[in-house]
Write a protein that binds this DNA or RNA. Structure first.
Ligand code: FES
Ligand code: FES
Lengths: 149, 149
DNA sequence: ATAATAAAGGACAAAAAAGTCTTTTAATAT
DNA sequence: ATATTAAAAGACTTTTTTGTCCTTTATTAT
């Protein structure tokens, strides 16, 4: 695996896609999101449920329903998305898996890994869901590796 | 999960323990390692097999056998340990799981995540298996969170 | 009111990761 | 040579993650 779980990866791609759509004042359904971010549709549904329950995205049912963000969600941080799906272990856990990361009884990697985690946290706190809307609309950034889009 | 898989976490703790033992000119068996790093004994056996096949640690069978490092392995980098167990996805993979990380068609997080990965790589390349032997012998660093050490 | 739509929820299924157990192979001490 | 020791190897089980499918609930358009 990479840095995050598969679920979290789908979640990241999905929220940016929803952000871009909401920026263009469009709600989007699971199917459209899945097609645009290369994720299995029903599995993505489960992930969106979690994000919705955690207040990361909003949803409405019925015709013309779908997922969207208000200004409130647009200002959420990417770190909150990760935490909603993967928990906060990556932000606070010990590099070599000791039951808790401790200053008093540090593991060998403690000093150096504090820095890595801090950098990761800084970056994920600095990225809002709205941050890349302009570039995404202009097509300068990608949420998939497909032929089209 | 944390940054690495459970297997990789056990591997990291194990190699540092073996390094410390070899530094004191002692071979160590699976049981002793498992007891000292809080890992399930048979599962650790599997991990040590992989490390052995990948040339990270050496082993000898029979009475007084066990795992140990020569000067050659003492100079291996922690990044090699991680790669032997988890592969190199964490060092080269796209933050949001696109099939490949690409400069030409970057994902929104590309710029910032390059930095995180570079920092991670720099640190794991900078740590040799021998690096913490003195501190481990002195008991200043821990490989478990148990009552006794 | 009714039909159509789309997310929510729950029950499953498949695959991967984590963990266990038993047998085999190699080394050494007697 | 033989018994003993300890890792290697392989088959297996359990748990977690990933993914699917079907039913229910809420919303909207007619
Ligand atoms: S104790 Fe291991 S990272 Fe802090
Ligand atoms: S394209 Fe995503 S990190 Fe490089």
């Amino acid at each position: 695996m990479g840095m995050f779980s598969k679920s979290a990866e789908y979640a990241i791609r999905a929220v940016f896609f929803i952000a871009k759509s909401s920026y263009l004042d469009k709600k989007v359904g699971i199917k459209e999101i899945a097609n645009n971010i290369d994720s299995p549709e029903p599995f993505l549904g489960k992930i969106l449920q979690q994000l919705s329950r955690n207040g990361i995205v909003r949803s409405s049912k019925g015709p013309n329903g779908g997922f969207y963000l208000t200004d409130e969600e647009m200002n959420k941080k990417l770190s909150e998305v990760i935490k909603a799906i993967d928990g906060d272990e990556i932000f606070i856990g010990c590099a070599m898996g000791l039951s808790q990361c401790s200053e008093e009884f540090p593991c060998p990697l403690h000093g150096e890994f504090k820095a890595v985690r801090a950098e990761l946290t800084r970056i994920l706190n600095g990225v809002t869901l709205a941050k890349f809307n302009d570039e995404l609309v202009l097509g300068q950034l990608k949420l998939n590796r497909s032929k089209n889009s």
